[in-house]
Simulated assay, not measured.
Amino acid sequence: MKAVVDPQSFLLEEGPDMPNNPGLPVLLYPQALGDEVTDKAGAFEQRFRENGWGGTWRNGIMGHHHFHPDAHEALGIARGFVEVQLGGEAGKRFRLQAGDLVVLPAGIGHKNLSASDDLLVVGAYPRGQEDYTICRSKAEVTSMPDVPLPESDPFYGKEGPLTRIW
């Protein structure tokens, strides 16, 4: 197993269209999975499962701004690359590639701006947050619920960086 490396973190203030989460940063783990891992989708699924994150799926990232008011979300890039915008129309752009992991606090807007034809993303949610809501505008929620913090980091477990940073 790779040594635990603290992720990059980015706070995103509330935007005109997305609530975001000014109290919890987005966590970006560049190359969480090294080049030696050939089945990145399976490796992300296994790590998520071992660390108490469920509701896993394999697909891409939606091509419109959206957020989950009631769930935190882990997105492992298993194949290809994607340029995402986090935080809504006024948010920041990131290029994510195979092996990268990004963890989004509840309320963070995200959108696929462009991607490789072979993009494959594995998503997961903390225990108890697998039945999440998808909203396209903060006008759809009267107030953001108080979403419980995850019990563990989706990649490194109970002693992982997320549990210290959040």
Rank of each mutant, 00 (worst) to 15 (best):
K2C: 01
K2L: 09
A3Q: 14
V4Q: 15
V5K: 15
P7H: 12
L11I: 15
L11D: 04
L12M: 12
E14M: 11
P16K: 12
P16E: 14
N21T: 11
L24E: 14
P25E: 08
P25Y: 10
V26N: 07
L27P: 06
L27E: 07
L28D: 01
P30W: 05
Q31R: 15
Q31P: 03
L33K: 06
D35Y: 05
E36I: 10
E36D: 15
V37R: 02
V37G: 02
V37T: 13
V37K: 03
T38P: 00
T38E: 15
K40F: 04
G42I: 12
R47M: 15
R47S: 14
F48K: 00
R49N: 11
R49G: 03
R49C: 02
E50S: 13
W57T: 15
W57L: 08
N59W: 12
G60T: 15
H65R: 05
H68T: 05
D70F: 04
A71C: 07
A71M: 05
H72K: 02
H72Y: 15
H72W: 15
E73Y: 08
E73L: 10
A74F: 06
G76N: 06
A78I: 09
G80A: 09
E83Y: 11
E83L: 13
E83T: 15
Q85R: 15
G88E: 02
A90D: 14
G91C: 08
G91E: 08
K92T: 13
R95S: 07
R95N: 06
Q97N: 02
A98Q: 05
V102S: 04
V102A: 06
V102H: 04
L104C: 12
L104Y: 03
G107M: 10
H110E: 03
K111A: 02
K111Y: 00
S116G: 10
D118W: 01
D118H: 01
L119P: 03
V122F: 01
G123C: 05
G123N: 03
A124D: 00
A124Q: 00
Y125K: 08
Y125D: 00
R127S: 11
R127A: 13
G128C: 04
G128I: 07
Q129S: 02
E130K: 02
D131M: 04
R136G: 12
K138P: 01
E140Y: 03
E140G: 02
V141Q: 08
P145M: 05
D146Q: 13
P150M: 06
E151Q: 14
S152Q: 01
P154R: 04
P154E: 04
G157D: 08
K158E: 14
E159T: 13
G160Y: 07
G160W: 07
L162D: 01
L162H: 01
T163D: 02
T163S: 06
I165K: 10
